[in-house]
Design a protein around this nucleic acid. Sequence first.
DNA 1: CCGACAACCTGTGAGC
DNA 2: TGCTCACAGGTTGTCG
Length: 274
Amino acid sequence: MPELPEVEVCRRGLQPEVLGERMLGAIVRAPRLRLPLPATLGDTLAGQQVVAVRRRGKYLLLDCRGGVEDGALIIHLGMSGSLRFVATGAPPGNHDHVDLLFARQVLRLADPRRFGVVIWQPVGAPLHPLLAVLGVEPLADEFTGDWLFAATRGRTAPIKPVLMDSHLVVGIGNIYAAESLFRAGISPLRAANRISRERYRRLVAAIRETLADAIAAGGSSIRDYVHSDGGAGCFQVDCAVYGRAGEPCRRCGGVVRQVRQGGRSTFHCPSCQH
DNA sequence: CCGACAACCTGTGAGC
DNA sequence: TGCTCACAGGTTGTCG
């Protein structure tokens, strides 16, 4: 489900519910997701107070203190993960793998495909390798057209998979890569090192706008649950190109095309994007 | 270093 | 209706 906007919307929904709250413990029902689940998570989280709810790329971080060991609970939702508040004692479904037990409710992680990750990061320990390799935040000031231009020298791969490389820049997945490139008028097939500095400036602006719009669209619909249920894909009101193969481009009326890049579908308008 | 690809899982929808 | 296949929003590891 989640790319950066979905995770950010999730974070914003989570924060008012858990910030300052204390956990009684946790229930772990699966041995592993993408990685083994921490075996003693219940003990680790018992008595912890959530003192911050942060996001890094597509990872959610709950900073905790007051238990046996201060640290951060790190959650990645993978392709199919979701977080939802349920009443204490609510019976778990098939794919409800982890419950975080708060005094008045339960934060429940479901993940049918089990591509998600839950790890415990103690304060002072070296940053977990999964997070240590992450690139820049696309909404941070340092992410500029000039930076991206410099970072893509020597990259001969098409720009779309390069945008989705989390070692370079985090949070841009299949949907928003396609949407951002459409907004910038750049072909997803163009080699990254064959795009001018000026066009990279435009691309970075397009990425920021696309992500910000998606956050705004999702953020307006949060209430008592903290995730987008995705379904067809966009929880954005509508995508310009993603998922619209064969349909008319909203800008020029031409046909939106679907191609395959690195095993994944790419949607674009060949007449608007060069 | 870079890029292409398989792999990890399950659910869903299309087509027969 | 029921089966099979292709595909799905992410990321890592391997290989050339």
